[in-house]
Design a protein around this nucleic acid. Structure first.
Length: 228
DNA sequence: TCATTAAATTGTT
DNA sequence: AACAATTTAATGA
């Protein structure tokens, strides 16, 4: 495992929203952010909780999921390293609507609501970032619906994986991601067996490499448009 | 460091 | 869903 210990300032410098924040302000923000480690399978936050912060993934992978009253688990989306989420719940001032689970040991940072609001009230660049982020996510969910309705399993797997490498939402993510085929199945809405089959097809097509417990993307744009 | 074992993940039916 | 094979992680000599 390449467990590189990235410092908080290092991480923040890779975040797009930080580009529009002055050095002094960023330092102040860094001091207000709380770091925490969440073990594989642990909760980053739970449905129904008060939303007290905006959440960033320094290293790791988390998923938003929802447990229905009948006990059916649905995975909505995954957030890899470099991603921030929860701005929707902060802006709406409502309890968190989904469980966030770590898919592997993850380093998480929490920006307190007060800090988030200060940036919102004082920094136009930050507001513009949020617009772009919300717009990008909206596009992602629309594409997701399209995928589920129109595409065959190979393409669903390809595009679900491709979405994890969205450069706008998750900048700085490499080409490799650690995720089990079972979890890819949850994200793509197909069985683990079918994921295995699809990954082999995609590997033969030269779009990615299959590894134990993860994949490395070789041709991202082809992956994101597979089946078009 | 090496060997053994358990746990996780993959590949196939 | 079940099973065997493979890879990794953990343990202790």
């Amino acid at each position: 495992m390449t467990t590189q210990r990235q410092t908080l300032p290092d991480f923040l410098s890779t975040c797009r929203w930080a580009q529009s924040v002055s050095a002094e302000e960023l330092q102040r923000v860094a001091g207000e952010i709380v770091e925490k480690k969440v073990p594989n399978g642990g909760y980053v936050c739970r449905r129904g909780e008060d939303v007290t912060s905006w959440i960033g993934v320094v290293d790791g992978l988390v998923k938003m999921s929802n447990l229905s009253p009948e006990g059916k688990l649905t995975t909505l989306t995954g957030v890899p390293s470099g991603g921030w989420f929860g701005e929707g719940s902060l802006l709406k001032d409502e309890p968190r609507r989904y469980d966030i689970l770590a898919l592997r040991d993850s380093r998480i940072v929490c920006m307190p609501r007060a800090t988030f609001n200060r940036l919102l009230n004082t920094n136009i660049g930050f507001n513009r970032f949020l617009l772009v982020q919300l717009n990008e996510r909206l596009g992602m969910f629309i594409a997701l619906m399209e995928n589920e309705r129109l595409l065959e399993p190979d393409a669903r797997v390809a595009r679900s994986l491709g979405a994890l490498f969205n450069p706008v939402l998750y900048p700085g993510i490499g080409r490799q991601i650690q995720i089990s085929q079972e979890e890819i199945g949850f994200l793509a809405g197909v069985s683990r067996q079918r994921v295995n089959q699809a990954l082999q097809v995609l590997e033969k097509a030269g779009l990615l490499r299959v590894e134990y417990g993860g994949v490395t993307v070789v041709d991202l744009s082809s992956l994101q448009t597979f089946g078009a």
